[in-house]
């Protein structure tokens, strides 16, 4: 599952302890967007707890892929076949 996690402030770009493959984007409104693949809900909660422990302000957590990925894949496939 891919998730977008928005937090207040520009977080350092080089933090490497984030769970695998999360990218950080600094947005002009003074927020950061963490984006990437999160293996499961447990990992997502773990990430949120890490943000909590750094006293970061959480603004939004949104999935960036719909949960039913397989369905979408099938739709895309049928579209290309047309």
């Amino acid at each position: 599952m891919r998730y977008c996690v928005r937090i207040r402030g520009h977080l350092d770009l080089e933090w490497s302890e984030w769970p695998g493959g999360l990218t950080i984007r600094h947005d002009p409104d003074g927020t950061s967007l963490l984006h990437g693949e999160v293996p499961d809900q447990a990992a997502l909660y773990g990430l949120i707890i890490r943000l909590r422990d750094l006293s970061l302000e959480l603004i939004a957590v949104t999935p960036s892929t719909p949960p039913r990925k397989r369905l979408r894949g099938r739709l895309r496939h049928s579209r290309t076949s047309i």
């Binding site: 207040r8 402030g9 520009h10 977080l11 350092d12 950061s32 750094l54 006293s55 970061l56």
Partner: peptide, 8 residues
């Protein structure tokens, strides 16, 4: 003026 988090 910085957007960086206060902690960082």
């Amino acid at each position: 003026a910085s957007h960086r988090t206060a902690l960082d």
